[in-house]
Design a protein around this nucleic acid. Sequence first.
DNA 1: TTGACACGTAACCATCTAGTTTCATATGAT
DNA 2: ATCATATGAAACTAGATGGTTACGTGTCAA
Lengths: 106, 106
Amino acid sequence: MTEVVHHDVYSAIADPTRRQVLGILAGGEYSVTALTSHFTVTRPAVSKHLAILREAGLVTERKMGRERRYRLRAEPLKEVRDWTERFEQFWIAKLTALEKHLEKES
Amino acid sequence: MTEVVHHDVYSAIADPTRRQVLGILAGGEYSVTALTSHFTVTRPAVSKHLAILREAGLVTERKMGRERRYRLRAEPLKEVRDWTERFEQFWIAKLTALEKHLEKES
DNA sequence: TTGACACGTAACCATCTAGTTTCATATGAT
DNA sequence: ATCATATGAAACTAGATGGTTACGTGTCAA
């Protein structure tokens, strides 16, 4: 890992474990240990993934006694959705072509 | 680069150069050399990026004489859009909270 | 105050990544 | 036939990435 400097939202969600973390956090607030129970990797590994997600602004943390609770912060995903949607017309065009082809066949 | 085995759509779009390539290809078909003129990296680097994009199903190629023309294939981006949109309610909730706050202020 | 628990961080490692230069091959032009 | 152009692939490199184990510190419980 060795999360150095950058880590934008795109590279943050490139890792499947991190995407899964976000999926779990969609269900509420979790401590590192609680999160770790969902994975096969060790607790420090999850901790590092959380650091990367925090760097990308995708999670926030708050101290609760000796725990540290992580919470989803979805805003940065809007950027990804928007960028992706720029290409929507292209896959729609392809589907339309397919539909036309199927119409011609029937 | 050394694009090995996996390269799903998420890691394919994690690289800013590759996202830019897709943006350019949204404007039509391009040869490798034509694409390279938009970047500072060398032609083989662009070629490798294209190989990764092809592996992720995001571009298709066709031979045109001695050229090889690359074309956008946006379909795999639908998966990213869908995954991202699962979280839409969360950023909307945040905006709603902000709106409420602003309403209270005014 | 002594111990157990939760957590981040350091040190280390194997592998992947993005880039380079060099080379081989196919195709088009003279 | 000869030469230039377009491209992929090979060999190599520095640095990033994902993982581990070991350790230090803060906090709750006896």
